[in-house]
């Protein structure tokens, strides 16, 4: 065990060094992105090693000319996605996250989230970019939320929630959910009617789209959508507005039957309906511990 760990560390170190040489970079990106899950210290290795982050930034900006008009090949997309997976490590790690934010590196991914092409290379590019942002918000850290709210992340997430595949939509909704769960984020989104209705409309459209699916609705997407709505209902003005703009489908027992195996989400939905004032619909979900609206917070 110890010997293999040592061997791993040496291998990783060697691949990190290879990142700064264009001739060895592509292979190093591939090898390191395979190792990232089993080597928890990859992030500090990357951050502190001379030029490794600069090299990853070169990979990112080298793709910009292929965004418009869209001409990203599968090969170029895979390569940059490997670089992004390494940045996701840096975003996840407790000892590099703040440095990563301080250097404003997430903003270099925003041009990828602006793209509209639905081809697979672009879809993977958006998904992997969202993965980096998702890794930032996954740990609950108000500094991260403040940073993201000072940027255009909300409109960019909403865009993916409209045009992305199910998986991209879910990651984007997860990001919005994590932003909302922070008080700063909830207050930000509920600060103006325009913001609230922009988020509400996109969440509503996703619910409607799920109901129209040929297959079963996506449970994991619905779970994050419902959590977003529930959190919005903690704000008094949003709670009022949701009375009229919450999709009726969420009170339709035929539609919500798809949640029958997911107690947590069913309880969230029951609490949401109770908060918004649809106590009969809440009761119909059969979640016994939801008996009254949760207290509102903030002003």
């Amino acid at each position: 065990m110890a010997a293999s760990t040592l061997g791993d560390a040496q291998q990783v170190e060697s691949f990190v060094h290879q990142l700064i040489n264009p001739a060895t970079r592509e292979n190093a990106l591939l090898e390191l992105s395979k190792k990232r899950e089993n080597f928890p210290e990859l992030a500090p290795y990357l951050w502190h090693s001379f030029g490794a982050i600069a090299a990853l930034l070169q990979e990112i900006v080298a793709i910009y000319p292929l965004l418009s008009p869209p001409s990203l090949t599968a090969h170029a997309s895979n390569r940059v996605c490997n670089a992004l997976a390494l940045l996701q490590c840096v975003a996840s790690h407790n000892e590099t996250r703040a440095l990563f934010l301080q250097a404003h590196i997430p903003l270099f991914l925003y041009p990828f989230l602006q793209t509209m092409s639905k081809t697979r290379p672009f879809e993977y590019l958006r998904l992997t970019s969202l993965g980096v942002i998702g890794a930032l918000v996954k740990v609950d850290d108000t500094d991260v939320i403040n940073f993201l709210l000072s940027t255009e992340i909300i409109p960019l997430c909403l865009r993916t929630m409209e045009i992305g595949t199910e998986l991209s939509k879910t990651v984007a909704t997860f990001i919005v959910q994590k932003i909302l769960l922070d008080d700063v984020g909830l207050n930000y989104i509920c600060a103006t009617a325009e913001r609230f209705f922009a988020v509400g409309a996109v969440l509503g459209n996703m619910v409607v789209a799920q109901a129209q699916m040929v297959d079963q609705p996506s449970q994991r997407l619905l779970k994050h959508i419902i959590r977003c709505y529930l959190r919005l209902s903690d704000n008094p003005r949003a709670r009022e507005a949701l009375r009229s703009c919450l999709p009726e489908l969420l009170r339709n027992t035929q539609f919500t039957a798809c949640l029958k195996n997911d107690d947590t989400t069913r309880r969230w939905l029951a609490q949401l309906l109770m908060n918004v004032g649809f106590s009969d619909s809440a009761a119909a979900l059969g979640a016994p511990d939801v008996v009254q609206p949760s207290p509102v917070m903030g002003a």
């Binding site: 990232r36 996605c81 992004l84």
Partner: peptide, 9 residues
């Protein structure tokens, strides 16, 4: 899917 996309998932 590229390995990177799996990281997001």
């Amino acid at each position: 899917a590229p390995d990177g996309a799996a990281a997001a998932a």
